[in-house]
Simulated assay, not measured.
Amino acid sequence: MFPELSGDESQLIQSADNPIPWTYKFDWQTRQIEQGPDGRYVKTATYAEYLAEIAKKILNTRRFRYSIYSDRVGVDFLYDTGRLQSGISLAVIRTQAQEALEAHSEIERAEVTDIKFEGNRVIFSIEIEGVRGSTRMEVNAWQR
């Protein structure tokens, strides 16, 4: 039922042949890419930070909204922005979020452990297992 893992930890060590992926950090308050003191854009430094940033980008992007992203980036529940909380099932949002996260090539398994409405936001508590490691995080999404 569960796959057996073979190999050792040497596969996880960063090498020139297999570098840790990175993405730019995004400031979710200002909706701008973060800049360092020297004016350069800030990149993620660790794999856990990379997974967290990717999850935030996926859960805050409406699918098919931006042509630079493939159809595997984004969620469909953002089309329901403005509907009443009673008209939107948290179970459906949870399923869509997990499917959207698992569509990313670096994410092997994503589980939404908790989901709730808080004011005009949906708060996700997520556990993600990536190709090279795992992380837990909380993601605020969907400002209505």
Rank of each mutant, 00 (worst) to 15 (best):
D38H: 08
D38P: 02
K43S: 12
A45E: 15
T46H: 14
E49W: 13
E49H: 11
Y50V: 05
L51R: 10
A52Q: 14
I54H: 05
K57S: 13
I58F: 04
I58L: 07
I58N: 04
I58W: 05
N60S: 09
N60E: 07
R63Y: 06
F64C: 08
Y66W: 15
Y66F: 15
S67G: 04
I68V: 14
V75C: 03
V75E: 04
L78A: 01
L78W: 04
Y79A: 10
G82S: 03
Q85S: 06
Q85C: 08
S86D: 10
S86I: 06
G87F: 02
I88H: 00
I88R: 05
I93G: 09
Q98R: 07
E99Q: 15
A100W: 05
L101W: 04
L101I: 09
A103N: 14
S105A: 12
S105N: 07
I107C: 09
E108G: 09
E111D: 11
V112A: 06
D114H: 10
I115G: 02
K116L: 06
G119W: 01
V122M: 03
I123G: 07
I123S: 05
F124V: 05
S125F: 03
I128G: 01
G130S: 09
G130N: 10
V131Y: 04
G133V: 07
S134V: 01
V139N: 07
N140V: 09
W142S: 11
